[in-house]
Design a protein around this nucleic acid. Structure first.
Lengths: 348, 348
DNA sequence: CTTAGCACTCTTTTGGGTGGAGTGCTAACA
DNA sequence: TGTTAGCACTCCACCCAAAAGAGTGCTAAG
């Protein structure tokens, strides 16, 4: 592949920058005048023709300006983009928005999503920590009705999961209390992902010591855990921000998009894709997502963590044309801040 | 006020019916031909002119057909509408959709919202039971970190509320366990709305008997309760269904609407309005809502209950032009079915 | 009281025609 | 050899006038 000259890159950057700002195809004149390249429109035209041939730009029709292709945007993001770092004032504003929400993790994540959406004027998303990645802090069994046990799981990060189990036998509350006390001791500070394995192991190892009581306690835990393992939740805020983008002025396009949002599992899958990169901001552009409903949008995401444990992913969803130079720093900063807030002092 | 003759009513009904179906202004010819009135278009025109004068119909412009006004719709709803009762098959379908979801109340309500949205092809809404209307089944205090207590409240209907309290003193878990055991006994089967009063009362009455321990237990309960009292949640599903209505083809209108949806508190207030009617389907049409963002939409709602206790409201939100004759029975049936499901046998 | 007929009104659609933006190419220039 | 000015050409967006269509109100006759 042929290298791009400095000038080629400058022109590409100018086209992308202008296009991101205006949403309109960019002409040679505009670039020559507005972006301090000391060459004439005619020269720019030549360069642009080259860039088009290489697949970085495209023309909606003859005699229109150029628009960056996905390949062009990718190149821009990978090598050209100049981040506009956040002002101290902006950092302070974000910090302020978090203030007082540190207690309730659910609320915390929801606020995060709102912050992302309002600061980036797009939709903000935050994926709840998967149970596998969290650590268990507490478990509680409550008898709801005969044969129904509500199990409440609280992870270290403070998230509450609950589900109702139907049990063959009717277990009285005071016995359930014993179970939970036992399990709480047993599981202290063990990664939830290991819980099942660990339980089975213990059962094997000290089988004789377990009376039917404790076996059952572990059985219930296992089942409750299973029920919650797959639950994954998502906060999406600021969907209406998307309506402000001229690319979604078309109702039909919008319908498809919002439809994709309604079935959150798709977005979750998309975010899952980015969970693998253990850190840093990641961008998925249009068709890179491989989900046909989301081909017109792009995702800027970053994982957040608690100490060393990856908890989940947060990010911004918007049209492919977005102000990356600003949004990337915002996502990065927010992810860092959230991680920091979750990194509270360990309990004594 | 002048009475409407039989023929006037028949014409009004025809106009409403046709308008609801097509969304277009209805002409005299259409009515004369399609709705079995044995009079000519000219006669219909005379009747329509009368109805217009009385404020039941209006013309978007001269030489267009007629459209029902809100007053016209109201009259239609109050006296003319003929319900299309649900087929057995449809009932079965709804019942089927509920199957297996009876355990988890949260999931149950979400499914309800989905059912409403997909059966009516509009947005379905379900308002969570307010804590005041529920009854407490269980309370649990868990020490999250030093000075932080997570309180979990479970209502009789199986809903879980939780919140984190910051407490001045650090209370060890085993003491918290005592508190919850105590409070659970104390509050058994008392309406939550009375809890605060009852607690204060008990404190006064038997003041000497309470050592500092129990006083504190009650203090914590009171505060936790307070924190959850105002929380009210809402499920809205099928918002994209609204996009299918031609009345929302205009992006600007849509923006306003979805914006209103994003701030759920407005919808909650709207639903609250209908909570007062203790039973039966209620309809709020356009401007009747007094919320200016929602003037273009209308709400068909019905409360649902558990035994004698009003729990919340469910319903369908859509444009003023909706197929009431079908949606009303669906809402009614669903509310009944949900109530029935919640009406599970009391625990022993 | 009902109906047929007709003129009238208002909207929606259609189809040029025009102006503007931007290109590609060519030829001249450094 | 790379850069620039000039120019013809293309295509879209917009405007406006004309035509089509839908439905009315009014009048006069049944």
């Amino acid at each position: 592949m042929i290298e791009l000259t400095k000038r080629d890159q400058a022109v590409l950057e100018a086209v992308v920058t202008d296009y991101i700002q205006t949403g309109e195809p960019v002409g040679s004149r505009t670039i020559s005048k507005r972006y301090g390249l000391k060459v004439s429109p005619a020269t720019i035209r030549n360069v642009m023709a080259d860039l088009e041939e290489m697949g970085f730009l495209q023309q909606p029709h003859t005699s229109a300006g150029r628009v960056p292709t996905e390949k062009g945007l990718r190149f821009y993001l990978d090598t050209l983009v100049q981040f506009r770092a956040l002002e101290n004032q902006e950092r302070a504003l974000i910090r302020e928005a978090f203030r007082g929400k540190e207690q309730d993790v659910k609320e915390l994540l929801q606020i995060t999503s709102q912050i992302l959406s309002s600061f980036c004027r797009q939709a903000g998303v935050v994926l709840w920590p998967r149970l596998t990645m969290a650590r268990l802090r507490h478990i509680e069994f409550i008898r709801l009705r005969p044969n129904q046990i509500m199990v409440i799981l609280i992870s270290k990060s403070g998230l509450v999961h609950h589900s109702v189990l139907v049990w063959e036998e009717d277990i009285p509350q005071n016995e359930l209390d014993k179970y939970s006390r036992y399990v709480n001791e047993l599981l202290e500070d063990v990664p939830l992902g290991d819980v099942k394995r660990r339980i089975l192991e213990e059962m094997r190892k000290e089988k004789v010591l377990f009376d039917q009581l404790y076996t059952r306690a572990l059985e219930i835990t296992t089942r409750a855990f299973q029920a919650n393992l797959e639950k994954s939740e998502l906060f999406i805020e600021g969907q209406t921000n998307l309506l402000n983008n001229p690319e979604f002025a078309d109702v039909d396009r919008l319908r498809r998009l919002l439809h994709a949002f309604e079935d959150k599992s798709r977005i979750i899958r998309l975010l899952d894709m980015t969970l693998k990169t253990s850190s840093g901001v990641r961008i998925i552009l249009g068709t890179e997502s491989e989900l046909k409903e989301l081909q017109e949008i792009s995702l800027i995401s970053s994982p957040y963590r608690r100490g060393d444990t990856l908890l989940g992913v947060l990010g911004v969803i918007g049209p492919v044309r977005m102000d990356y130079s600003r949004i990337i720093p915002v996502v990065e900063f927010t992810a860092g801040l959230l991680s920091q807030i979750l990194e509270e002092p360990e309990e004594v």
